[in-house]
């Protein structure tokens, strides 16, 4: 059995001369929560569209549960639930009617999940979709996705327009219920705190390039901000040095691995190490994106 839920190889998408996704290699293990981070226009949605067969890759390939997204789209869609970035649905239908519509497509559909999430997320099920608030419209999408009994949830900006309480409820549902039944969750977001809270794996995309993909714990244990005082210290980036900021005699390094060894090297060059601190996901993300720019 393939141990990867999503696996892409040089996945590329170009629109004319614009390279929306530039040959990314994603590896999402089964049963994991994967946060796909990137700024607006970084290529998150295009990547998701290719995974769902809504856009054809210009080059490269992607597999979902070992199935090729171009050749076995129907089988993939049967096991995949999707929440779109644009939370529009049929305006004249009520959530109850949307449930009725969606139910027939999936043999794994669960009406008890509908009842459960409708109650939990406090969705007015008898109100027409167009009359719902933005937050409730997002919740309807989530209700439909969660009730599908899918093996893979692909969520494109799932917390858009949700209030903090609803975000909290959603993250709880994803972390507890989703993982509880072995579901893989792949979600894109720029809400770094949300990703940090539930994701086990993180991928950072910028200008169509995957800058980093790793376990969140590994990232947090490896990345360090080192502040050193000294003269003529290294001021160039390298695979180990993500960024360097120089202020007078003070050098602030963001290092991606072996922070202790790097600090020891600086000490040998006469530097005084004043601080070694871990970085939050937000800081790491900003450093990565700035370097790419």
């Amino acid at each position: 059995m393939n141990e990867l839920a999503i696996d892409s190889k040089d996945l590329t998408k170009t629109y004319g001369s614009i390279r929306a996704v530039g040959g990314i290699n994603l590896t999402v293990p089964r049963g994991a929560i994967y946060g796909f981070l990137g700024r607006n226009g970084a290529g998150k949605t295009t990547t998701i569209k290719m995974l769902l067969g809504l856009a054809r890759p210009t080059a490269g390939a992607a597999r979902v549960f070992g199935m090729d997204v171009s050749a076995e789209r129907m089988s993939i869609l049967q096991r995949t639930a999707f929440v779109s970035e644009k939370k529009t649905l049929y305006p004249s239908l009520t959530p109850t009617e949307l449930v009725r519509f969606s139910r027939g497509f999936y043999p794994t559909w669960s009406d008890s999940s509908v009842d459960k999430y409708a109650r939990l997320l406090e969705i007015p099920m008898k109100q027409r979709f167009e009359k719902l608030s933005n937050g409730n419209q997002t919740k309807v999408w989530l209700l439909l996705a969660l009730s599908q009994g899918a093996d893979l949830l692909i969520l494109d900006e799932p917390t858009t327009a949700l209030d903090p309480l609803s975000v909290d409820q959603l993250l709880h549902v994803l972390a507890e219920d989703g993982l509880g039944r072995g579901c893989t969750i792949f979600f894109s977001s720029h809400q770094l705190e949300e990703v940090e809270r539930i994701a086990e794996y993180v991928g950072v995309i910028e200008r169509g390039n995957l800058l980093m993909e790793s376990r969140l714990d590994d990232i947090k244990s490896e990345f360090r901000l080192i502040t050193a005082a000294g003269n003529s210290l290294p001021s160039q980036t390298s695979p180990q040095i993500l960024s360097v900021a120089v202020e007078g005699n003070f050098y602030r390094y963001v290092v991606t691995k072996d922070a202790e060894g790097f600090a020891a090297g600086l000490s040998q060059n006469g530097a005084t190490i004043t601080n070694i601190v871990p970085l939050s996901l937000r800081e790491i993300f900003l450093q990565l994106v700035r370097r790419e720019q």
Binding site: L52, L54, M74, S75, L77, Q78, T80, F82, S84, K86, T88, L89, Y90, P91, S102, F105, Y106
Partner: peptide, 12 residues
Amino acid sequence: HKTAGFLLTKPR
């Protein structure tokens, strides 16, 4: 109506 993303991700 921008609902194609919803519809075309149904397994049909």
